[in-house]
């Protein structure tokens, strides 16, 4: 795929801080943004944090309970902003996705109320005081492609 991902530094810091607060457990949320007119560039503009979740050092399960209203509000903005993917942390671990992550993205893409076919997965490797590294993966045809 010939695509780009752009995220403002302020939003990246917001995501990192949310993840560090939950250290040493994993944490995550929804990515909001919009595609450029030619669908080549993803502009990530916001994150929604889940109201309900379960987490441990090696797993994170989020609920989408209560986000539909916020998604509708974001879609009424100009430009329209919408759900574009997910992020979660890997405390003291690499940014490599797991099979659980890949299966999650397959399920999300195939879900009936998801209109986009290439959602993005962002994985952040963190430690107790900061960010080690982060990666974006773009889902395509049952694979997660590392964004270059």
């Amino acid at each position: 795929m010939d695509v780009e991902v752009q995220i403002p530094e302020g939003l990246l810091n917001k995501i990192v801080n949310a993840g560090i607060k939950m250290y040493p457990k994993e944490y995550g949320g929804f990515l909001i943004g919009f595609y450029s007119e030619d669908f080549k560039i993803l502009h990530i503009t916001e994150t929604i944090l889940p109201s309900e979740y379960r987490n441990s050092k090696y797993s994170f399960e989020r609920s989408a309970k209560g986000i539909k209203g916020e998604l509708k509000r974001l879609y009424s903005l100009n430009p329209k902003q919408y759900y574009v993917g997910e992020w979660h942390t890997h405390p003291d671990n690499s940014t490599q996705f797991s099979m659980t992550d890949l299966n999650a993205m397959i399920e999300i893409t195939e879900y009936k109320t998801v209109g986009i076919s290439n959602p993005t997965l962002m994985i952040l490797s963190i430690n107790k005081s900061g960010l080690n590294d982060f990666e974006f993966y773009v889902y395509n045809d049952k694979k997660l492609l590392r964004y270059e």
Partner: peptide
């Protein structure tokens, strides 16, 4: 020329799965 895709007949508006586990 392959960019981000939208499912046939769908819009970009999406509501993701209710519960989802990551590892």
């Amino acid at each position: 020329n392959e960019g981000y895709g939208v499912k046939t007949g769908a819009s970009t508006f999406s509501v993701p799965t209710q519960n989802q586990r990551f590892g």
